[in-house]
Simulated assay, not measured.
Amino acid sequence: MRFDLLSLELFVAVCEEQSMARAGDREHIAASAVSKRIADLEVRLNTPLFYRNSKGLELTPAAHSLLHHSRVLMRDMKQMEIELAHHASGVSGHVRISASVSTIIQHLPSDLREFLATHAAIRIDLQEGTSQQAVEAVAENSADIGVFGGVVPRAGLRIIPYTSDRLVVLMHAGHPLARHAEIRFEALASHDLIGPSKGSYLDSLVLRAASELSRPLKMPVRVNGFETVCSMVEAQLGVGLVPEVCAARYLASGNVVARPLDEPWALRQWNICVQDSRTLPAPVRLLLKHLTNRDSR
């Protein structure tokens, strides 16, 4: 069975946009032409690819399978084009990373700076999200490397330890908890807590710890990102749990203080997930080796 590459590209666009018209706008082709290509694919496969309803297009099981393989094919074709075009200048290409906000703030910037200093022909596409989204992106071939924590990965992915960080309690300098040298999570239940983003690694840790308490947490505000948590703490809207590296940026002002969180889960482990490393393109293998050899650097 032969497939037309343009039809597969348009199919991926329709899946991602969930609309023939939006896919056509994105790929600069008439919506009617997109519809014809999709209809031809369905005839060739002898199965429908989309359910049409009032909300738009919904993928059928066959479409999910075709999307997975199409993304792999598109990635490999793009990689082939880039490597052949820049063959004379050494290793080059494009690496897609999906990572949690916490690792993007703390760890990846310096690691990527070091890597790109010696691999200037490689381009990085970095997307932020939750740990769950990072794992799903790799499993669905919309990312080459995922950086995550606290998530049970899908079967078939290779998991490699990356790095760790430690959580501290950040609070306004005049807060009642500021007099303590260390703070147990139970003590936070009596005070307003700036809640983490829903679905994040920290959210899973907080919810698990809260389930062991005899009283509910008070989280008047939920925010996305540690910089926002620190701003909420400065405004005296509550206390926040942030990595100590992030907290250090705010301590110099004297308005806030940080105390260690006295809990075993305060030390968080971050991991990397990839597809079968034996089939990864050369640029992805190079970056993977760089990220997983942090201790040797």
Rank of each mutant, 00 (worst) to 15 (best):
A248I: 11
L237Q: 15
I159L: 14
P220N: 09
I145G: 03
L213F: 06
V151F: 05
V138C: 11
Q127Y: 04
A210R: 09
A235K: 12
A155M: 09
Y201P: 00
V233L: 08
A134H: 07
C230Y: 06
T130Q: 03
A137Q: 10
G146Y: 10
N255L: 15
S214G: 15
R158T: 15
A252H: 14
A235M: 14
G199H: 08
E136A: 13
A209V: 00
I160G: 00
V138W: 10
P161G: 05
L167G: 00
V151G: 01
I124M: 09
L241D: 02
L207V: 14
Y250F: 15
D203M: 02
V229D: 07
Y250N: 06
H172I: 01
L170H: 01
L241I: 10
L241Y: 01
A137E: 08
D144R: 08
G195W: 05
G240I: 04
L167D: 04
P216M: 00
S142M: 13
A155P: 01
A187T: 12
L217C: 06
G225R: 00
P216H: 04
G254Y: 12
P161K: 05
H175W: 08
L217Y: 06
A247L: 03
A252M: 13
R179M: 11
G156Q: 09
D192G: 05
P176Y: 02
L213A: 07
V147W: 05
V242E: 07
A178C: 02
S231F: 04
V256F: 03
C230P: 04
V257D: 00
A252Y: 11
M219N: 07
A209D: 12
Y201Q: 07
A178K: 02
L237C: 11
E244N: 05
D144F: 09
T163P: 01
V152Y: 05
R166I: 15
A173W: 08
V168S: 02
E182W: 06
K198R: 13
L213G: 07
P220A: 09
S211M: 13
L157T: 12
S200P: 08
G199D: 10
L207S: 14
V151K: 03
V245Y: 08
S131R: 05
E234Q: 15
A134D: 09
V242M: 07
E227F: 10
F185A: 01
Q133I: 10
K218N: 14
D203V: 04
V229E: 07
S214I: 09
A248C: 11
A209E: 13
V229R: 02
G195D: 09
V135A: 04
T163G: 01
V239H: 01
G199W: 12
E227D: 14
L207A: 13
L167N: 03
A134E: 10
D192M: 09
G146R: 10
E182T: 15
R208F: 10
L202R: 05
M232F: 08
